[in-house]
Design a protein around this nucleic acid. Structure first.
Length: 151
DNA sequence: GCCAACGTTGGC
DNA sequence: GCCAACGTTGGC
């Protein structure tokens, strides 16, 4: 089992959207960055994922979700009406990958970016590094424990 | 809204 | 394969 962190704008998909329908998996589609895609490809059922709210008023980790379907070709890349459509991608040779996730838990409080930044245990986590834009990243066991212990 | 940092594109 | 130009991300 591997652990991860994904960024999302809460206007698009927040931890509350997961919590609202705890029995329904949400398709994590639309990642269009190769490094992030490579991480998604490695996701398998049972992986745990922090949900980080970005580009919003309250920035930080809001909770966690669980992978319920192994990585598979992102359906949005074939949908010409989708914002995530990619004309260069074909079912035979798909470029982008999606994964299905289900609600895990919402943390009793938001773990803010500010408090994550000052922890020396997290200095190698891409999330807190200056200029970082990676939207999907692995979280080590130690990093996971450090973050969970904050809430 | 600003803008630094970054990833991608495309001409050469 | 280099790199300038461009578009995007994301904190502030």
């Amino acid at each position: 089992m591997t652990r991860w962190l994904v960024k999302t704008e809460p206007d698009e998909c927040s931890i509350d959207d997961f919590a609202r329908s705890p029995d329904i998996a949400i398709v994590w589609e639309g990642v269009r960055n190769y490094q992030a895609r490579n991480f998604i490809r490695d996701m398998t059922v049972g992986d745990e994922v922090f949900v980080y709210h970005s580009s919003c008023k309250h920035i930080g980790i809001a909770g966690m979700v669980t992978v319920v379907r192994d990585a598979y070709p992102d359906p949005a890349q074939f949908d010409s009406k989708s914002d995530y459509y990619d004309a260069k991608s074909t079912p035979d040779n798909p470029r982008w990958t999606a994964v299905d996730m289900i609600f895990g838990r919402k943390f009793p409080r938001l773990i803010t970016l500010d408090e994550l930044k000052v922890l020396p245990q997290l200095e190698s986590l891409a999330l807190v590094r200056k200029g970082n834009r990676l939207s999907v990243m692995p979280v080590s066991d130690d990093e996971w424990k450090t973050i969970v212990s904050l809430c």
